[in-house]
Design a protein around this nucleic acid. Structure first.
Length: 286
DNA sequence: CATTACCTGCAA
DNA sequence: TTGCAGGTAATG
């Protein structure tokens, strides 16, 4: 569930609570498959006594910089939540990882669907993670031309391309649909078919919807919460996502929902014209 | 590129 | 009971 804005909010709210605190113990780890690397014995032996020096985000990964060169990377996937709990709080059956802190509070990694993952990375592993991911769309370094380069010569359709974390980082099903609506682009448009104006529209649309998602503390459809356990309210601002049959905020046409790459995809059939309905580009003589 | 698997809860 | 859910990796 959590996409870039949600993970960003979790990272910020976690940083506000646990920076400079030490992880004293792993109090619960009852779904061992969530630990992807290193092996379980090393994970269990290394995490205790690590101090949390910084908390950030890369794509949809939450990164806790620890001492001794370690980074704890957590991925919430569809239903994960990271919260800080008082000493007396009891983990429920969906809480699969509990990290005790030096002041008695604890960090709960709760995950109904058990898709969430954790990696304890050394500097080499961290570099490999970064290298596997595309650019951060909110990075001040990320320019219109960078997006143009990502789209150029790619036959893939916009929706699956923008969901691909190796191409561009942090977008998920909600924010792709929202961005394409803002940019007036149909999700099935071929990436390489965009003209410069359309690339520019998409660039600002992506940044706008992500920034708006952060401003509204993320989107809570079912389970998403920040690290205080509070929901976001960006779902109240959706233009198309989860709004099948409801009026397009721009033109009033009922929003359509189709399947693209097996993902529910929402768009306005008038504002985002079907690529097959676009005027044929006649090869202009010279 | 499309399909399937990974999990569980919830709404239709 | 079936299908669907904010994600990704593995498989044809």
């Amino acid at each position: 569930m959590p996409e870039l804005p949600e993970v960003e909010i979790v990272a910020r709210s976690l940083a506000a609570q646990v920076l400079q605190h030490k992880i004293t113990a792993i109090e619960k780890l009852d779904w061992e498959r969530m630990v992807e690397t290193p092996d379980l014995a090393t994970f269990r032996a290394t995490l205790p006594d690590r101090c949390i020096l910084a908390i950030g985000r890369r794509a949809k990964w939450l990164l806790m910089t620890l001492d001794a060169g370690w980074t704890l990377a957590l991925h919430l996937r569809m239903s994960g939540n990271l919260t800080v709990q008082a000493a007396e709080a009891m983990p429920d059956i969906y809480t699969h990882l509990v990290l005790a802190l030096d002041d008695g509070r604890r960090i709960f990694f709760q995950d109904q669907r058990k898709f969430g993952r954790v990696r304890l990375l050394d500097p080499v592993g961290l570099a490999a993670l970064h290298a596997s991911l595309g650019p951060e769309p909110l990075d001040t370094q990320f320019a219109i031309n960078d997006l143009a380069q990502l789209l150029a010569r790619r036959n893939a359709r916009l929706k699956p391309l923008l969901l691909n974390q190796a191409i561009i980082a942090g977008l998920g099903n909600i924010y792709v649909d929202e961005a394409l609506w803002y940019a007036h682009l149909h999700p099935l448009r071929a990436a390489s078919s965009l003209d410069p104006d359309e690339v520019e529209r998409l660039y600002y649309a992506i940044r706008t919807v992500l920034q708006q998602g952060i401003q509204n503390h993320g989107s809570t459809l079912r389970t998403y919460r920040n690290s205080y356990g509070e929901p976001g309210n960006n779902q109240e601002h959706f233009a198309v996502y989860d709004r099948k049959q409801q009026p397009c905020p721009r033109c009033g046409t009922p929003i359509k929902r189709i399947l693209v790459a097996q993902r529910g995809t929402h768009f306005c059939p008038v504002c985002q014209p079907d690529p097959s309905a676009l005027p044929i580009t006649v090869e202009n003589n010279r």
